[in-house]
Design a protein around this nucleic acid. Structure first.
Lengths: 249, 249
DNA sequence: CCGGAATCCGGTGTATCTGCCGGATTTACG
DNA sequence: CGTAAATCCGGCAGATACACCGGATTCCGG
């Protein structure tokens, strides 16, 4: 693959980031992924998000340039359970080069073998993304670059896609409506909920804040109503997801 | 400031990342921060980490190139409570340019005014980092670049420091020996906790999962013990922070 | 073969939560 | 000047959570 001029790539990167921030619905995502393939000379790009949708226990969010055949085959074979890029990648912070993965397992070698047949590149990188409340994503790219090029390219891929992955995750969170309906809690309501989230009872919270237990209960009730929560546990979960409980040092 | 050759900067970046990965004790950090100032022509660099030490409720981890006077003054004035770079930066995913911050507040203007007197640059960016276990960090850089240069530089700073911030955080986690005592919940425990987090009662959860109410209570009790939580609310909060409620099966 | 973990089920007494009733003052905003 | 929101306080009945007691089978690895 020919190395392109760095600065022209840079411009395209920043334009793409801007586009990601301006997306208004999910239909634009495949086109953006396609442009990534062109700009960086990649074989495939994939986004796998977990905890980005509102409902629990939902299947993960998927946006890929893979063929439908590969996606179907992957699902049918339950590859996700053994795929080291997912199993390892989702449990670390730094990006990982697929060359570093352990391929001792028979099933794993089969996975990579079949992946190649379905059009994935020989080289790959997966970049983990960590959101604010347990939401996570994994952006994986593959390439057919030569060994010599790869040594050089992988570092630049890691750098650019670290940004791209983050912005992509943010965009998808936004599109999935995770950032809307930000309920506004009063300081006292937030404070009470904060201590309840730490496992304190209403009585303990009252002592901590120097209030009557009944007052604390009232604040909690109010907070539940504002958040549309069925109980304190639900309220803590909802508030936590939108960053209302992020207490600072 | 003169723009340096991109590729030479790139090499230095990747060397720095490697050095960060090889650090064996915290004494090497100030030197690394100093090199960042040289390489990127910055005025200051600062790392603020929360939840990186083993014990909870500890004071945040700080590694800065600021003068001691500024750090002392900042603490004495309790600036952290009003500092928008911290208040906003710690609550978002994407980096933020200090120019975008709201400076309507009188105290905020005083903060930025005094910061300049103590040697911080006129321009700044803060980059949030999210770890796997609810740990967070904020890497802030300042510069005295001209308006024209800044427009160009900020994007490249954001890109390089996105990586640097991540690796810096990872290095500090490693040096602080942050034990990954990630509680391991059984699938059933996780499932029960998931529905309780959605506001369901034990009885409702039992119906959803096709179990007896008592069994659900047992799983929840077990989950509480594993997580060291005082009650279900506490357990949901703890599990949510570390992604136990959103991760793949 | 044995220990541990995961999957299930039942009961009981007490603590806590939740919803709903009532009241109050202060502050901010149009 | 009225209205709304935030800050506080009290009580009560029923639902729910919590801890601690007991039991069971299955599966996996040492």
């Amino acid at each position: 693959m020919n190395r392109r001029d760095r600065n022209s790539d840079d411009l395209e990167l920043f334009e793409l980031l801007e586009k990601l921030g301006e997306l208004t619905d999910a239909t634009g995502i495949p086109e953006l992924l396609g442009r990534l393939l062109d700009i960086y000379g990649l074989k495939t790009v994939a986004y796998l998000g977990s905890g980005v949708t509102a409902q629990p226990g939902q299947s993960p969010y998927l946006a890929v340039t893979y063929s439908n055949e590969w996606v179907d085959h992957y699902k049918a074979q339950r590859f996700v359970d053994i795929d080291p890029t997912v199993q390892i990648g989702m449990r670390r912070m730094l990006p990982i080069d697929w060359d570093e993965l352990d391929r001792a397992d028979e099933d794993v070698r089969r996975l990579f073998g079949e992946a190649k047949e379905f059009g994935l590149g020989r080289r790959g990188i997966s970049l983990p993304v960590h959101g604010q409340h347990g939401d996570r994503a994994l952006v994986s790219i593959t390439s057919d670059a030569s060994d010599r090029d790869w040594r050089y390219l992988r570092l630049h891929y890691m750098r650019d896609f670290q940004m791209l992955a983050l912005h992509m995750h943010q965009a998808i969170l936004r599109l999935e409506g995770k950032t809307v309906e930000q309920a506004r809690l009063s300081p006292r309501e937030r404070e009470c909920l904060l201590w309840v989230a730490e496992g304190k009872t209403a009585w303990e919270t009252a002592v901590i804040l120097g209030l009557s237990e009944h007052t604390v209960r009232c604040y909690l009730e109010s907070a539940r109503h504002k958040l549309g929560a069925a109980n304190n546990t639900h309220a803590v979960n909802k508030a936590g997801k939108v960053g209302l409980l992020t207490q600072l040092p």
